[in-house]
Design a protein around this nucleic acid. Structure first.
Lengths: 207, 207
DNA sequence: GTCTATACCGTGATAGAC
DNA sequence: GTCTATCACGGTATAGAC
């Protein structure tokens, strides 16, 4: 801890520039596809030359890795929140679904990219592995909620968690943020998703 | 109609070979991604050389076009079936959802490819346009079913049709055919999807 | 209908000046 | 930290023999 370094912390590359580069890259990846994006495309989007990119990151795949890691960290953080850990399983499941919707919207570019990953590189395979882990955690929640008698007895937990997140994740394919407060928008969408999943489309005679 | 041609009908290129090439290509597209697939990859998968492929099709994009057209034709055929055209709107909607699930499974490779298309070429944009048209037809069905009092009054038809097909289409991301009769498997999955969408996850006190 | 050979271009990545 | 210049490679596509 003795004074020895010049001025800037040299341990990490300039995080500001990496951040700028990353958000530009993610936008391009989403529009042109990861494979369809060239370093030239990324350079244009970031306003620097191809070569300069290599000063900040190791290459194209590192940008992908940074993005999907961010998305996954956000999703797993939801599982760690109190609402996902306490109470009846059905309430925890509803909480996770709602918060996942909000997280998808809040973090749309990174999550969109994550959901398009198919497993052709080491980075992509690790991302798929973490997605599977998330899915298993939710399947366990579904199983618990069935055991507690709050969800229909006939449901298959694994299939159900897949369908739940199939629906939730599909929002990334068409949702585009509208106004200043996309917090309120996110809440409304999450309500619609939770309502559809838990109560279904059909009008009920009672109620 | 006077005898003049040698032996083979020269008006269409050999459809058998095109068919073989197409199904090989679609498998590769799904694994490696369309952009990530080279003509070399396609040649290896089809067991011929790169150059020979150009004897059968104009290039990579024509193979994509053939595939997504097939998928879309299958989906639109469902809308033309009697079950989608007669009776209460809620029954027609349920019919379309069920048959679409079956169609997705029956025609899995082509539908999978269709669902991954993002609109970067003319072919892809035309496919997206036809998907939107399909979605609008279903949204109209949802609206009619609400008007007839069979679906919950609070639903937004456009959002609802998007969520319905988000769930249905997500099956292409994990479903892999198992046994000989994937007809029965398809029916069981379609039942699960229809049950979840129309009646929801929650156990009901009555019934 | 398939092949070999090749044209031509864009790719990811590096070297080294400033 | 950014640039210009360049590399080796793999991409789509074509020419022309068999």
């Amino acid at each position: 801890m003795v004074a020895s370094q010049p001025a800037a912390p040299a341990t990490r590359r300039d995080s500001h520039t990496v951040e700028t580069l990353l958000s530009a890259a993610v936008e391009v990846f989403i529009v042109r596809g990861y494979d369809g994006t060239s370093m030239e495309d990324l350079a244009k989007a970031a306003g620097i030359t191809k070569s300069s990119i290599y000063h900040h990151v190791a290459g194209k795949e590192e940008l992908l890795r940074l993005s999907v890691t961010r998305a996954l960290d956000g999703l797993f953080a939801v599982l760690g929140e109190p609402g996902a850990a306490e109470g009846r399983a059905v309430a925890r499941l509803e909480y996770v679904v709602r918060r996942t919707c909000q997280e998808l919207i809040e973090n749309l570019p990174h999550v969109t990219l994550l959901l398009r990953v198919r497993g052709n590189t080491a980075t992509e395979r690790e991302a798929l592995e973490r997605r599977r882990e998330f899915d298993h955690r939710v399947a366990a929640l579904v199983a618990a909620a069935i055991a507690e008698g709050d969800l229909r007895a006939g449901l298959d937990p694994r299939l159900t968690s897949r369908l739940i997140f199939g629906l939730v994740n599909s929002m990334s394919e068409w949702y585009r943020p509208h106004a200043a407060d996309h917090g309120a928008e996110a809440d409304a969408l999450a309500d619609a998703v939770v309502g559809l999943l838990f109560d279904g489309l059909r009008a009920r005679p009672e109620a």
